[in-house]
Design a protein around this nucleic acid. Sequence first.
DNA 1: GACCGTTCTCTTTTT
DNA 2: GAGAACGGTC
Length: 724
Amino acid sequence: MILDPLRDLNPQQKSAVEYLDGEQLIFAGAGSGKTKVLTHKIAYLIKSGIVRPDNILAVTFTNKAAQELRNRVEKFVEKQAGFIHIGTFHSICARILRKEIEHLGYSKYFSIYDESDQRQLIKKVISDSNIDLEGFLPKNVLSRISYLKNWLTSPEDFKPRPGNRFEYIVEGLYPLYQKALKRSNAVDFDDLLLLPLKLFDKEPKLLEKYRLRYQYILVDEYQDTNKPQFLFIDLLAKKHRNLCVVGDDDQSIYSWRGANIENILKFDAQYPECRVFKLEQNYRSTNNILKAASGVVANNINRVKKELWSRKSDGDLLIKIEAESDYDEAAKIAVNIRQEILKKKRTFKDFAILYRTNAQTRILEEILRRNNIPYNIIGGVKFYERKEIKDILAYFSVLSNPKDDVSLRRILNFPPRGIGKQTLSGIDAFAVKKQLTLFEALNHVDFLELSKRSKKAVQEFIDMIKRIDDSKEKLAFEEWTRIIIDELGLRSYYKEQGGEESIQRLANIDELLNDISEFCTTVEEANLEAYLEKVSLLTNIDVWEDEKNTVSLMTLHSAKGLEFPVVIICGLNQGLFPLDRDNSEKAVEEERRLFYVGLTRAMEKIFLSSAQVRNRAGEMQYLPDSIFLSEIPKELIEVESLREGVIASKRRRYSRRNTSEVAYQGTDMPTRRKTAVRGSIVSHKIFGVGKVIEVNGMGDGAKLHINFQSCGTKVIVAKFVQVK
DNA sequence: GACCGTTCTCTTTTT
DNA sequence: GAGAACGGTC
């Protein structure tokens, strides 16, 4: 059945769908049918014959969302949906670059470097450059470079602030890093967005071409676009002025990676003739949930005021879980999930457990497993980041782009083939001297002063790569991968090694091959480059098997755009959520928006948990409840602490023995000395009770600034106070 | 050159 | 508590 895109919409949605006179901003509150509007709008454009499907560009936040959007549009326009350009910013830009990057002096087989590739590269750049990091970390340098790129500061433009040592180091390394990337024919995630801008600037004809192609542009999650993304869209839309952006300033949670909330807040200033639409009717959550979420986000100053409302009933109160420790927190979550399933006839996939940091998954995982609750972790240690998988992908990269030094370095001597440190540094020196890539240098092995054995090893490696490269032309991609994995000797290496770990790795290699098979059956042009691109642009959510009946575990960031009947937000402790890195009001506002995102994921029920003690980075920390808990109107929250089932298990002991067999049985943790953190309540023999306001140093010797009730602020060494 | 055990550091979120 | 880096041994 073919549907009508103007039906089943509320009046606000309908007018947003129908509006076609220039730039358009849709403020879409959580759960207000944003995807529906996008779907209907695209369908409307196509059905009414206003724009051809291949002249539409729709930008989504994940590849999964792109797929979903396409499927939903298909219900209206059938096969035509296949022609729409839909994707994330990164994948759309990658596609453009694959075609056009030669104008910028790269080859079209460029590699896309992920974080670990970038780290390897910057380390190499640092060691080749003799620049002293003075205690700063490669990671710090990278994140500053990324920040500069996100704000369009080129290596030439960047001027360090006088006296700022770090910025002088960055000034030295940034241009070298950029050169190294280019020499490796590689781009990082930031380049993916920047290079199209360069391209359009350098080749106006190309800009024209893409303007003609993308006559109608729609952008989802506009509140999280950064400057390059804004410019990309602005450039493309300038001519036809058919731009529709959808977003919610209350859900802007990526400012730390350059997202600029001003893009949405100042949209009307940017495009004076634009029309603004607001969608405020929520179809997702009960009223209690909405009231709680609104109450929280109302504490933010910098926002556009809007009032979400729902025709749904009040529903259940929010439930606060008070736990003694992080283990106890996980156990209580498990008990509550079981109870909900029993009493409310829910099923595992109705639940999502959301947290601020990935590190929190470990304990949750352990406890859920012991309670036989099936779960599914989104993000965390990713499949494609495992060593054995990364190694294979590195081989793929080298075979596609021989200039990719980082990948070549990774696999040159793995599995071990006699090209060790000595040999490598000899080749390396030669490469640096002659300005060659590592692979080119390997080809000149005869000129190098190396032992006979080393030369032979290198020659054998080169011959193998050439052999495999030849076979690439002759075989279909899938068949080729199966053959070369054996030829590379990775399987036999792990088989020889033996042990649990090797078995797991071999299984992962098989899983990769399965993934490739699946890729080949679902993608039309399945080849090496397409596969590498898919893998490097995958988002966390893309790999989520949402049809499985399991509880979903993910960070609050990953949960954006999703919904679940029951949402459990854990770790609501001051210092963890909001995370205390930078206590500026701006940072707290973003954390609060993140909490708002979490709350508004829920359709029917919310559990909020905090734990008094948590193990953080190997240390026990006592953290007070999150301020966010106090921002929820009191009458909407019910404290759980006395519910049956939890209490029954409370007196039993927690045992470290038989950890794999025994279910978690209580709340007692192995005791450890308590550590004072900011906010801890401590007592001192003479001064009495006080609150820690600052901590300098670590362990027993840390100097604590304590505000005592009796006598004001004093500085005391940690070992003289007791943490309550 | 490979391997193994130890020390050290660093802990946000992700395309 | 995990991963990387380092240093020592075979």
